[in-house]
Design a protein around this nucleic acid. Sequence first.
DNA 1: AATTTAGGTTAGTCTTTATTAACTGTGATG
DNA 2: CATCACAGTTAATAAAGACTAACCTAAATT
Lengths: 210, 210
Amino acid sequence: MTGGPETGTVRSPAAATQRGQAKELRRLALLSAAAGLFAENGFTRVSLEDLGAAAGVSGPAVYRHFPGKQAVLGELLLSVSRDLLDGGLRVVAEAENPMDALKGLIQFQVDFALSNPDVIRVQDRDFGSLSSTDQAEVRSLQRAYVETWVDVLARIHSNADVAGLRVRAHAAFGLINSTPHSVRHHGRKIAVKSARPILEQMALAALTSA
Amino acid sequence: MTGGPETGTVRSPAAATQRGQAKELRRLALLSAAAGLFAENGFTRVSLEDLGAAAGVSGPAVYRHFPGKQAVLGELLLSVSRDLLDGGLRVVAEAENPMDALKGLIQFQVDFALSNPDVIRVQDRDFGSLSSTDQAEVRSLQRAYVETWVDVLARIHSNADVAGLRVRAHAAFGLINSTPHSVRHHGRKIAVKSARPILEQMALAALTSA
DNA sequence: AATTTAGGTTAGTCTTTATTAACTGTGATG
DNA sequence: CATCACAGTTAATAAAGACTAACCTAAATT
């Protein structure tokens, strides 16, 4: 019955039972392993065997937790997109003026990028491997996140057109998300901490210039 | 004899013969098709069948021009890396002072990114699909290109440490190369032209701040 | 004109890998 | 304690796709 429901009775949220907890742990281990493996090798070159192995089980056991390989990627990217949007909205809501909002967004994004380089990497490399419905949802969440930035920028550059501000927002993401691409692989936690202020400063300068 | 030499007698450079010219055209068509297909779908999800078809031939004919699928990617990315390094060196050589050099580099990179969004995309998405020797060579060329930027930056920020300047350079690439990622797919030549000044201005602001 | 060369073609071959099947052992549950 | 549910396991199954073989045809070459 491999194709059966892959969650508890009715998606019991972290059942108090021993088994339920173990399952939750395995699930998280799989997601974490997936982030690392996908980031390192790309979705298509990671086999389910690899994925299972990295989480301590082997091969088809993944089907006890996810309906398939693609679904693992989906869960990963949807969760990132949601986290970013939520965080962005919260930051803006808490800010008292547009400039503080912008600074808050920058700080938030830099923090996220430096803390989760793997998912950032997977997000813009393996987006195309998502099911089309997941693609649509991720795109929608991303659009909303971008609009959050654009709204803030619009209150700062009161004259500029929205299309241009969108280009600016994307460029800022590219700037901030650059380290997951450049830091490449193993070790090197050294530079990460010192990168934060540089990125924040550059992003602010780029977004407030002219 | 599928595995035989895939070029003329001794890599005759564009033989004047009718066949030689046709071959050269096919070869270029294949590379161009590869850039588009790889950018759109990612290296691993493009089959040799797809690639051949996009160039007007079908399937294994590709082996008459390249030793394999991976080699097509290799040629593509090596050529990009070389073009970037050459262009960067030329720009810096022609500049009369560090600030002009920086502006020239920015202009060059923006131009390149807006003119060749496909290869830019492929370069930082499918790098890992290269043979390890090609990876090494591309990395080496990229490193040299980055150092070109870092050298110029060092003459502008005479106090800053090299590691920080490297972070800055990478961030600038991320910023400038952002549109190939955001512009996503079909059409939309509209925004491209208007993006140029925005990107140039942002990059300059980001790289000269503080 | 005869012969060779080489780009193309279509039909295999061989791997890799996602997904299923068929079992198994042990923690819930009554 | 008896039964069930279910996470895991190892063996199929099956599809995709890179690469090879065997031919075929027309341009080069003699």
